[in-house]
Every structure is written in C-alpha cells, then in structure tokens.
Write a protein that binds this DNA or RNA. Structure first.
Length: 490
RNA sequence: UCCCCAGUAGCUCAGUUGGCAGAGCAAUUGGCUGUUAACCAAUGGGUCCGCGGUUCAAGUCCGUGCUGGGGAGCCA
C-alpha cells in the first residue's frame, strides 16, 4: 500500500470556490509512489511543476512535492477537458493530478502517471524567478523564500531535518534527557562573544537613573522587563551543567545568538547548537562521545539520505564520499596542544601567525593539521589555560586546562568542549583571574558547593555539521533564512 | 572590523587602446517531437549598481558610497 496523509490545503490567492473537493484531501507522496513495487490503479498527487515538455497529443509534466529529490513524470493527454490550460502550465505552478501509475516506456524513470484529471491550483506567472537551469548560490540567497524549491536546497533541508532527528535519536537511545535551556539570559559573562541585548524599554525615550540631564545619564534597567539587563543566549552550557548535575546525562539543542561582526562563510548571528553535558565524565570520555557522536550522525545520513547525498557528491563536492568515509572508518587523531605546537613549528610550512606555547591555534594551523598533515578529523586537547574560559578544569600541570576541539577538514572547528572545573576553590580563583562575577553566577557556584562531581560536555555547531555532511561551503546556504551582519530579509 | 576581487537583459556572462549595448539560457509566438536541462525558427527585453569627476566622447579611466563574493580576526 502506498502511504497517504491528510494535508489540509488552502488557497489564499484564490477568490472563487476551492478547485479541490473535500474528498481530494488524501494525497500520495511522490517518494512513496516512486518506491512502489507494482503499478497502481489509482493515485492522487499534489505538487509543483518543475518543467513541462509537449509531445504531439500530450504533455510530459515533471512534478515535485518535496518529499524526495526526484520528480515524477505525469502524462497529460489531449483528452483532458482542460488540456488547453494544461499545455500552458509553467515552471513553479501548483497542480493536483489524479491518475494511474504505470511502467514508463521512456528512459530515466521506472514509473509514470497517466493523468485522468489535472487540476491547476495556481498558475505561476512567467516572471517566476527559478528557471530550469542551474542558479548560483548567491542569486538563490536573494530569493531565500523560493530556493527550497530547487533540487539542491530541497536536498539540503531534508538532510538538515534528518540530522536533527538523528541527534535526538543518538542521545535518547543512550539515556540522555533533553533540556530546554533559556533563550533569554541575564548573565553577560558567558564568555562567548558579543551579545544581543533584549529590552522592552522605549529606546527613543528610555527611563534614566538620574533626573538631572547630562551626558553620563545611565539607563535605568530596573525599569526594564526583567528589572535588569537581559540578552539572547550565546550558549546554554552553564544552565545545562545544572541539569547534568541532577539528571546525569543531558543535552540541549536550540538556537544561539552572537552579535559578533563576523563576515565569513562559517559564521551566522543566529545558529543552532547541540550541547551535551555528562556527569561523572572526564575529558577522555568527553572526546569518546564527540567522536562517536559525529560518526553516528554521518553514518545515519549515508544510510538514510542516500539519494539527497548523491546530489552533493556529484555536483557540490567531488570528494564528499571520501571525506565522509574517512570520518566513519577511522579513529580521530588525538593530539595534545603541547605536541601540536612543535609539530607545527617543525613542519616546514610558513604560517602567517607565529606558533608558540600560549598562542591560540589559528585557522591556518587547524587546517594544516586536519587537511594536509593528518588528512582526517583531529581532536586537539589540553590547551593553555590563559586562552580558555574560566569554567574549564585546570590540569595538574597548572598550565593547561582539560579542553578539546574537534577539527575536521574543510570546516575547521566543529566541536569545542571541556571537562568542567568542579573544585569550588579553583573555580572561584579562575573567575577572579578571568574577571567573571562570582556574585552574578552564585547559582553556578552553588553546584560546586553541593555535591559537586567531575563532569564534561561539548558544543557542536549544527550548521557546520550540515556543511560537513553536504559539502556546502557557505553557512548561509544550510540555514533556511540566514541572519548575518546587515542581513535580516525574510 | 581588516585585506583582495566583482557588480552589464529575468539568470549566467563577454564587451579589445575610451568611439553605435552583445551571446547563451529564460520569456513570448509558431513549428516538430514518448520527451528527459527536449529540439528548430522568429520576436520582445538594458538606470551598464548609485553619486561625483576627467574627456569632444565613459560600460571602459579617477574618487566615493552601496551590495555581493573570497580570505583573515572572533568563534560554533
């Protein structure tokens, strides 16, 4: 049997009676039809016309409903009452087709639909921007509302959806609890970049602390919605830790916001992040999880999105299959920072940024390690404490912290994580050194005061994962409506 | 934010030393055809990104702004 569902249709641009009758609301998905084992005497499909070719007494209509990459070929002949209109069907038009499914005598497809009825839901005018040819990503970005109707973007967003599902599957199967950490936060000391401020104040005329007018008149945030300054979250980690220290293994998966003026193909102001946090877990186990997690996700997409993935392997990145198999088949290299430094120093390659202990690794260094030296994912760990945030656990050498970054070819850093500092006294002195307010994070310190345990976690940039899996090189093309500096159309 | 490159028809692009604005695809019309980014013919289509300057003359040279891309920083 072919699956069908009860999608409710409505036609906001239609003023007359609905062209579809009440009984028409069950439709067959094109992916279900195309994978059918036998011909079907009665099918109902609804979708958008990708292209139309006319023969002498009939038209070939390529129909796509987004359920899969492939179109289904509809044969609409001149016996149809409205054949004159059908012959004018343009790319982008929406139709409802009733008919029978048969073996296709032509090359290129197994099945085709012989239409007994073609209802034109909406005829797309000839200025429909998507043509039957390849468009550049830059152009498609200017029509982000229409680009999911292309093969490439349809495939990308089906993969993005499946990856989201696989993330939940991975953690749920392992007994992790999904935690919704807040989007709005009161702490500006999370230590990860510039924050977007959230306010309900009238910015044209904000309340002032001092009645006397003057240049140094401070805004009175006690009059704001939360009675203090508030921001969009840059990470759910600190809150996630509180739940790991109660439910043992937890994860978050949600949007994150950075007001950094970053103009690169790997940064967005609004992006999604996965942050697992595990109690009774040290850095080595944290790295085990990070590696296992990425391998699981890549394997899942190779198994469950083969058709969509094939598009990317053929047209977007010729090396994609090799890259992905490299990830699933090998153990990730684990390289302590202290060994990475001499390796980079003595590799014979000239870098723009000098390499020395205490220096953060630059993009050029990470790319060299993952793309040229090891040619596979690398986990670098035990970084100098001077370049890492306050919450990372100080190692016995008192010079490094138990931090780790997973570097993959082409993307660079895809995961950043650490074992967290569970010792109250060490944490407090680190906060002093890093200039983080102990008063504001009293609740965070409480977790180290009452039943503190070793725990670890990491953050995975979800869009970077989609880029890794698809071979897409610009983050703006793996998120439906990208937000970047100066760009918030749609 | 910094460095580099680009902006010409709906889309992708060409445009020589400064001298009449071009092609392919798309669109429209007609023809042909179990077609596969179908094919053939004809037709229509331009604020050469904006502003200012040099020049007899600017798509072309200069300045400036805007937009986009690549790289860097920051990071996921």
């Amino acid at each position: 049997m072919v699956e069908s569902d009860g999608i409710i249709c409505f036609f906001p641009n239609q003023t007359g009676p609905h062209p579809l009758k009440e009984t028409d609301m069950k439709r067959n998905r094109i992916n279900a039809l195309l994978s059918s084992e036998q011909p079907l005497p009665s099918v109902l499909i609804k979708g958008w016309v990708r292209t139309r070719r006319d023969a002498k007494t009939f038209s070939f209509i390529e129909l796509n409903d987004g359920s899969c990459l492939a179109n289904i070929q509809v044969i609409a002949d001149d016996q149809l009452d409205n054949y004159d209109s059908v012959k004018k069907l343009s790319t982008g038009s929406s139709v409802c087709v009733r008919g029978t499914m048969h073996d296709s005598p032509g090359k290129g497809q197994k099945w085709e639909i012989h239409a007994t009825e073609v209802i034109i839901i909406n005829m797309a005018p000839d200025d429909y921007p998507l043509q039957k040819k390849r468009h550049t990503d830059e152009f498609l970005r200017t029509i982000s509302h229409l680009r999911p109707r292309t093969n490439k973007y349809g495939a990308a967003f089906r993969i993005r959806s499946r990856l989201s599902y696989a993330i939940h599957q991975y953690f749920q199967e392992r007994g992790f609890t999904y935690i919704h950490t807040p989007i709005i936060t009161g702490s500006d000391c999370e230590g990860a970049g510039e924050l977007f401020q959230v306010t309900a104040l009238d910015l044209d005329n904000p309340p002032r602390k001092d009645e006397k007018p003057g240049k140094n008149q401070k805004i009175d945030y006690e009059a704001d919605f939360f009675a203090r300054q508030a921001y969009l979250t840059v990470s759910g980690q600190l809150e996630a830790e509180m739940f790991a220290l109660a439910l043992s293994d937890i994860y978050t998966f949600g949007p994150t916001f950075r007001a950094e003026n970053s103009n690169t193909s790997r940064h967005a102001a609004e992006f999604w992040m996965v942050e697992p946090e595990m109690a009774f877990c040290d850095l080595a186990e944290d790295m085990d999880y990070a590696q296992d997690f990425i391998k699981f996700l890549v394997t899942d997409i190779m198994e469950n999105c083969a058709q969509d993935l094939d598009l990317f392997a053929r047209f977007v990145d010729k090396n994609l299959t090799t890259t992905l198999e490299n990830i699933t088949s090998k153990e990730f290299i684990r390289l302590p920072y202290t060994e990475a430094i001499p390796l980079l120093k003595n590799c014979g390659k000239k870098f723009a940024y000098e390499v020395f202990f205490g220096a953060d690794l630059q993009t050029e260094h990470e790319r060299f390690l993952a793309e040229e030296h090891f040619k596979q994912p690398v986990i670098i760990y035990d970084y100098p404490k001077t370049i890492k945030p306050f919450y990372m656990r100080v190692n016995d050498d008192d010079k490094t912290v138990a931090a780790m970054d997973v570097i993959v070819p082409r993307i660079g850093e895809i995961i950043g994580g650490s074992q967290r500092e569970e010792r109250l006294d060490v944490l407090e002195s680190r906060m002093d050194v890093c200039g983080v307010s102990k008063k504001e994070l009293w609740w965070y310190l409480d977790s180290r005061r009452y039943g503190s345990v070793p725990h670890s976690g990491f953050g995975l940039g979800f869009e970077r994962l989609v880029m890794l899996v698809t071979g897409i090189t610009n983050i703006r093309d793996v998120i439906p409506f990208p937000r970047t500096p100066g760009a918030i159309e749609f």
